[in-house]
């Protein structure tokens, strides 16, 4: 330290006794504050751990996930495309998760039941679709990175119809105002219900999706993986591919789609995971 720097050092006191005494006093105060800090941390940890459980999480943690959801929702999922890859990047297909896949499906007898449809033009509330109905929609192939919530990922190729096109053709019920009149589209986006619920034919596996992610241009009703029809363990005959979400939301073997304004139940959210699961 130069003499100049020394001049800048704040002096509290001089004189041996005085300095020692003063230091002890300051130490006592600071260490008491420190002890209070440690007690606060231990207490806070205990407090969080002992709160009422909300879907397998203490409510402060569940609330934090919901606040994060609101925060990231402002970065509109529909405004960002998941990166796509060259076919050479395609990896092997890891099979993970078999809930709801107990009963193999024959594509010729399988039906997709859709409920919560628009009835304002005299149409039915509920319809059943064959795989050919989905295949008759414009087909898209995307090569995206499938990311499991466990932390692994593989680049895969998917082919299917966009959910947004499916909804455009078979419109979900349009939200209404207080007089029961349908709400007009906002910036070209129809006033669809806020959520989409999907479940396997046996209802064992189910996911809830926000409408914004469901309308994302890369969200596919998918029937082909890596150039081949879906195998049973990958969700034949029709599964969801939604690259803006973790794998848990990419439900295999869709049996039922329901449009609703109530946040749908979600299999893994009930086990303590984030309902939103947005990437």
């Amino acid at each position: 330290m130069t003499a100049d720097e020394k001049q800048k050092v704040r002096l509290i006191s001089t004189g041996d006794d005085d300095a020692e005494k003063q230091m002890r006093r300051m130490s006592r105060k600071s260490f008491l504050q420190g002890a209070a800090g440690v007690a606060f941390i231990v207490g806070a940890r205990h407090w969080i751990d002992t709160r009422r459980m909300r879907q397998e999480l203490p409510w402060p943690l569940r609330r934090a996930l919901q606040v994060n959801e609101e925060f990231w929702h402002d970065f509109a999922s529909t405004g960002h495309l998941a990166p796509t890859f060259h076919p050479s990047a395609i990896g092997h297909a890891r099979t993970n998760g078999d809930v709801g896949l107990d009963n193999p499906q024959d594509a010729s007898t399988w039906r997709l039941k859709v409920t919560g449809l628009d009835t304002s033009n005299g149409g039915p509330d509920s319809m059943a679709f064959k795989l050919e109905d989905i295949k008759s929609l414009p087909a898209f192939t995307i090569i995206t990175q499938f990311k499991c919530i466990e932390g692994w990922s593989y680049v895969m190729s998917w082919r299917g119809a966009r959910l947004v096109d499916f909804m455009a053709k078979y419109s979900p019920a349009i939200k209404t105002d207080d007089n029961g009149d349908p709400l007009p589209p906002v910036r070209g986006v129809p006033a669809y219900p806020d959520f989409v619920a999907m479940s396997t034919p046996d209802k064992q596996y189910y996911v809830g999706l926000d409408m914004q992610s469901a309308r994302h241009p890369q969200t596919l009703l998918c029937y082909e993986m890596n150039g081949r029809p879906l195998t049973q363990e990958h969700g034949a005959p029709l599964r969801l591919i939604i690259p803006v979400k973790y794998g848990v939301k990419n439900i295999k073997r869709i049996g039922h789609i329901h449009y609703t304004n109530r946040r749908p139940a979600d299999y893994w959210a009930e086990q303590g995971y984030d309902w939103y699961a947005e990437l």
């Binding site: 990231w72 970065f75 999922s77 960002h80 495309l81 998941a82 990166p83 990175q145 990311k147 990922s153 690259p243 803006v244 947005e278 990437l279």
Partner: peptide, 15 residues
Amino acid sequence: KPTQMAWLTSLLGGY
């Protein structure tokens, strides 16, 4: 957020 911040993820060399 590898989709929302895809630019950042690819800048780092990927997920």
